[in-house]
């Protein structure tokens, strides 16, 4: 393989690795929004997933238990959010902001208390050896040129995500369940007339979204990094929100957006280091650009993408309208 091909494979692999948690959280958020509930607080939910996965893995020594704990934590957050926004008729945008604040506060608090507790017991706060996940290459498939290392040399949760995407695409496009989910957000009164319980349905969609976001958090803390830091999601949850709109509430668009974002992210990380070693004058000239501008790039790209794409993308009609509607 030529160095250029090598570089391209490397970048694509990084892009998929970085995009996985966003796709995972994005699928959940998409289902939630299609059912008529926008959850701004997935950032907080992901953080709760991160801390739950990290602490439970640290105590139990099993990554799988940690992953399940993260999904449970995400679902608990979803229950709180559903109680406020679906059953309590709170404004979803502001309730979502509160969920974000709650996730940041609670995860930071649990992290400090966990550190104190482990240190008092004389344990390290690092994960026990071998309890975090590492990449699992799939035996035969990962030898395929280009596609192999990019798609089949990833963390286990990445394969699950690919499967989930296929299943959800089928569910949303081809099944009665998918129709109901979309109708919850587009025509809740029709659902009601057909005997579907609107608030229950929305709550279940939110529960699914919570589990997805929790798992995405676990991916960040016990797979990708094997560490926890407060605010470690770094705005990824917010970017997911933007990407759902960017994909015009369609699964393929969302996945494409996440991969594009992941690619820009891996490109900027690579550029940050590569520009110093490069012989190429144009690339070398980039050494004068402060590295923060590279970090800014994904967010700028998201804003620009939204500015270009979000015209004529109406989305579910009943987003942020509590059921049952009250007419004046």
């Amino acid at each position: 393989m030529t160095p250029a091909q090598n570089m391209f494979t490397f970048l694509s692999r990084q892009a998929v690795t970085a995009a996985t948690p966003m796709i995972l959280a994005g699928v959940g958020e998409l289902v939630g929004e299609l059912s008529g509930v926008i959850n701004i607080g997935i950032e907080g939910t992901m953080l709760m997933g991160c801390i739950a996965a990290y602490t439970v893995t640290g105590v139990s020594g099993h990554g799988t238990v940690g992953l399940l704990a993260a999904m449970a934590a995400g679902m608990v957050m979803a229950v709180i959010f559903a109680a406020a926004s679906v059953w309590g008729r709170a404004d979803q945008i502001v309730a979502g902001t509160a969920m974000d604040l709650l996730g940041v506060g609670l995860s930071g608090m649990i992290w400090m208390m966990y550190q104190n507790w482990r240190e008092n017991l004389g344990f390290s706060t690092a994960l026990p050896r071998g309890s975090g996940f590492s990449a699992v290459p799939i035996p035969v498939l990962h030898d395929i040129a280009y596609l192999g290392p990019v798609l089949f040399d990833q963390y286990a949760l990445c394969y699950v995500t690919i499967g989930l995407c296929v299943v959800m695409w089928w569910v949303l496009r081809r099944t009665r369940l998918g129709l109901i989910i979309r109708a919850l957000g587009d025509a809740p009164e029709a659902c009601h007339a057909a005997g579907v319980r609107v608030r229950l349905g929305r709550s279940l969609c939110l529960l699914f979204a919570g589990a997805c976001s929790g798992a995405a958090g676990a991916y960040l803390s016990i797979m990708q990094t094997h560490a926890f830091a407060s605010d470690m999601t770094g705005g990824e949850g917010f970017v997911v929100l933007a990407l759902v709109i960017f994909g015009r509430w369609k699964l393929p668009g969302l996945i494409g957006g996440c991969l594009f974002f992941g690619l820009i992210n891996s490109l900027q990380q690579t550029l940050q280091t590569a520009r110093y070693a490069s012989q190429n004058t144009a690339l070398h000239a980039l050494t004068h650009v402060p590295f923060q501008f590279f970090q800014m790039l994904p967010y700028l790209a998201a804003i620009i993408a939204l500015a270009i794409m979000s015209r004529k993308a109406p989305g579910p009609r009943y987003i942020n309208v509590p059921w049952p509607e009250v007419k004046t």
């Binding site: 709180i80 109680a83 406020a84 309590g88 008729r89 709170a90 404004d91 502001v94 309730a95 902001t97 509160a98 969920m99 604040l101 709650l102 940041v104 506060g105 609670l106 930071g108 608090m109 400090m112 509590p322």
Partner: peptide, 19 residues
């Protein structure tokens, strides 16, 4: 961070009461 948790809870309760 306890303070942040309290703030978040206050918002949620106020929102639900308003709704």
């Amino acid at each position: 961070d306890m303070a942040n948790v309290i703030k978040a809870l206050v918002i949620l309760v106020m929102l639900v009461l308003a709704g």
